[in-house]
Design a protein around this nucleic acid. Sequence first.
DNA 1: GATGAATGAGTTTTCATTCAT
DNA 2: TATGAATGAAAACTCATTCAT
Lengths: 204, 204, 204, 204
Amino acid sequence: MTGDKKQERRKALEALTRQGILDAAIGLLMRDGIQGLTMDRVATEAGVAKGTLYVYFTNKEEILDATVDASFDPLIRELSVLLDDDHAPDRKLAEFSLCHLRFFDEHRELIRVIFFDRERMHSERNHYTDSRYRTFVQRVAEVLDEGVGQGLFSPLDSMKVAAMFVEANMGMVMQRIHDGISGDVEKDARQVTDIFMGGLRNRK
Amino acid sequence: MTGDKKQERRKALEALTRQGILDAAIGLLMRDGIQGLTMDRVATEAGVAKGTLYVYFTNKEEILDATVDASFDPLIRELSVLLDDDHAPDRKLAEFSLCHLRFFDEHRELIRVIFFDRERMHSERNHYTDSRYRTFVQRVAEVLDEGVGQGLFSPLDSMKVAAMFVEANMGMVMQRIHDGISGDVEKDARQVTDIFMGGLRNRK
Amino acid sequence: MTGDKKQERRKALEALTRQGILDAAIGLLMRDGIQGLTMDRVATEAGVAKGTLYVYFTNKEEILDATVDASFDPLIRELSVLLDDDHAPDRKLAEFSLCHLRFFDEHRELIRVIFFDRERMHSERNHYTDSRYRTFVQRVAEVLDEGVGQGLFSPLDSMKVAAMFVEANMGMVMQRIHDGISGDVEKDARQVTDIFMGGLRNRK
Amino acid sequence: MTGDKKQERRKALEALTRQGILDAAIGLLMRDGIQGLTMDRVATEAGVAKGTLYVYFTNKEEILDATVDASFDPLIRELSVLLDDDHAPDRKLAEFSLCHLRFFDEHRELIRVIFFDRERMHSERNHYTDSRYRTFVQRVAEVLDEGVGQGLFSPLDSMKVAAMFVEANMGMVMQRIHDGISGDVEKDARQVTDIFMGGLRNRK
DNA sequence: GATGAATGAGTTTTCATTCAT
DNA sequence: TATGAATGAAAACTCATTCAT
């Protein structure tokens, strides 16, 4: 079983290097923005040679993708779990808001990444970040449709309202960051949800 | 008085060159994004020498600032007029939405400029683009406060809701762009406003 | 005698690996040219680790040498046999042409290898490919001398004429390749030989 | 007329820089071969900054093309004049040989460039060097056809024989270089021509 | 003020080779 | 012997900026 162990250890070491590169890239992206993320600096920061970067990633693009991916993975997961739950639609949206706000309270540097990514998103190539964002809007839209089906919300163009909702949350995030994240998260999250709930409610 | 006239003409010519450079930069930014905006291309597009750019602007940064500024000037003006009017708060917000959506229907390329600018906004320097954005949120907040004062809306944290509103409009813009700007603008603008009006309405 | 057997088997295996590496290199050189021949690809193609290449060869140079060598081995052998035969000199030359043309009809990619190799040939080091080429010219020269001795050809500087003859064949090869190898091989070979025979013939 | 003079001088200076770069590249190509021709070295050798190279040439490819072009320009011109003359076909071919041999006697380093270029020639792209070579074969072919028309030569596939003739000359060049350019040029040129003349002569 | 040739630091990428396991 | 992760020197190319005219 020595072969197995060896391979295991090797795999682990590999993963470590890869993660180290990614961590360096994340740190750099957060600290200095997209302009500050050069291969040279990533290598230095990660403590490896420049060439090593190309052993683990095909090119800068791939590092960037992986970096953005890794940065948002926790949020993505949390939101996914949350939307998959079988709570009522309005509660899901409320939790969505809270989750969102909390995440950016703790990772306010990521705001920059998001907007940088959006800039790329609308360029010629179809980054999967785009698709991830769309997937999100899509899932929120499903929750909205569910709400409509249950007679909770009045009929609506779910995709458009979903996009609005997601963006409105971002607006709140930005406002909080601007204010120095002073306010109560729960309150602010409720603010977002209340408006949407109030605006969407079926008042037949 | 020939000196005066000469100077006048010179001033006019200078202004013209400056505007030409800016126009070139705007065109480039819209067409090719931030990556496509090089001093070389701006000069070529503007029909001046590279060195001339440095006669009118200290560096690239300054050109970029002025470019973003000039790009959104029409929207800014229109929204300013609109918010300064003495219509009812809810009508103002409705018009704000419509104006927003219409502007980006016709200048969808500017979306890219916005996000690029936001990326910069949160970098070390405090770009006045940022302040312009804040001014906007501020004015929307005032309209909201006005609405609260008139008993139209329930009490709210006006700055935060204003940020949400502005962003929600951007969300709708993005969704429209994604859909190929197929839908009815008026309807989509109403969608945004309805939700916020519904959500904000005072239901004492 | 187990030790002997073991060693034997090891030798055989080693030779196999070595040949596998060479085959991979040949394939790569033919398919992608000299630029496409990287140690990485050779290793991948050969199904061994990069490090293994350095077990069998000291460096890339050595692999290249061996590769070129192996590529032309079949032609070399055939031509050798042919020139060693005891046919008349003119017939030998005729067969030489035919053999040449036929080989490149079937291995037209090797033309590239030849020219790549010639470029190297005149570099500081004396590649033995060079010496092989020279050997060839040398043997053709012997055939010519034989012809002169038999009163078949007029006196001539055999080495120089031999070089011309070899190159003239290459010229025909290139022309054929350029034309898409359309024409009759036998006829083209005859063309070459006829001119040389006509030009060399003793017309006392 | 100051503007004119200024522009004139500027143009002259530009041409000078360009030529300086080309000269550096030619020197490098001859001395160190294709592998030794790096942008860095060309810049150093030419006494300009690396960036300057890209002011005058789009990329390395272009420098290489221009370099090869410039290297062979004298030979090309001479051969063109010669083939355009109204001498008899056989004399033209004789002069062609002599011209060829003499050129490479004085520029033996260029042999390397030729073979390097052929390696490129047969790569995917159609370099104009290729077309230049073909043009040459074409013109020799015309001379051959002329000879056939005058009853001087027996009927022949002129393109193929032309290619052979051109290459045979190269063979002689290489043999001379190998021998240290010891022999009499005129004699060697005659050797080439004699064989072809003898081989092509119409013996009806 | 206007020009545009020249710069050179900085960027991404490649790849032969080494060496610990 | 065989491996393959890591290296780092070297390559091509970019572009904001300067400065002599």
